[in-house]
Amino acid sequence: MSIDVQTFKSLFPSIVKHCHDDAGAAALLSAVTDKQVSAGDVVIREGEQTGDLFFVVKGALTTSLQGNNETVVMGKVNAGSTFCKVSLLDPGPAPMTVTADEDSEILVLSHEAFRGLEKDYLQMTGNMLRMLSDDLIGMCRSTNKILFERSKSAGGGDLRQWATDTYKSLHGEEA
C-alpha cells in the first residue's frame, strides 16, 4: 500500500474515525486496492455497475453527468475526498462519471472487501453503514425540501438550470 495508517487517517478523518482504533484503520486500509490513473482517464462512468467506494489520495478529478447531447460538469474531487459512497451501500449504477484531471492516486474499497471486514470488525463496518446512511438521508431530505419549495413557485425562471445548480450544490462532490 502506498500510504500508511497515519496518512490514511489524516486524509480521510470523517471515515477513519469510525474505525474505532488503529487496528480497524489498518484493516480498512489493507482491504483497499491501489489505483493509479492518468490525466484524462475515466475512473467510473455514470450508469456503470459498481459496488466500489473510491478514496482520492493524490490528484484531482471531475464529476460529470451525461445528457443526450451534453456533458454537465458537476464538481471536483480532490485528495482527501471520496466518491461513490452510495455504491458501497448497495451496488448499482454509478451516479456520475468521474474523470482524472491530472495523474491521480486512488484507493478502491470494493463492496466485497467491505463485507469481508464484517466478521472481525463489526463495529467499524456498522459505524460506516450508519455514517453513509446518515449522509444519504441528509441529501434526500434536502433535495425533497427544495423540490417541494420549487414546485410551489412554478414558472419562476429556468427550471433546467435550477435543477443543475441544485444537483451541483447538494450532490456534485458526493457522487
Partner: peptide, 12 residues
Amino acid sequence: ARQLVRDYREVT
C-alpha cells in the same frame, strides 16, 4: 441502507 439508496437514486 438499501431502502435509503433507493430513495437517494429516486431523488437524483
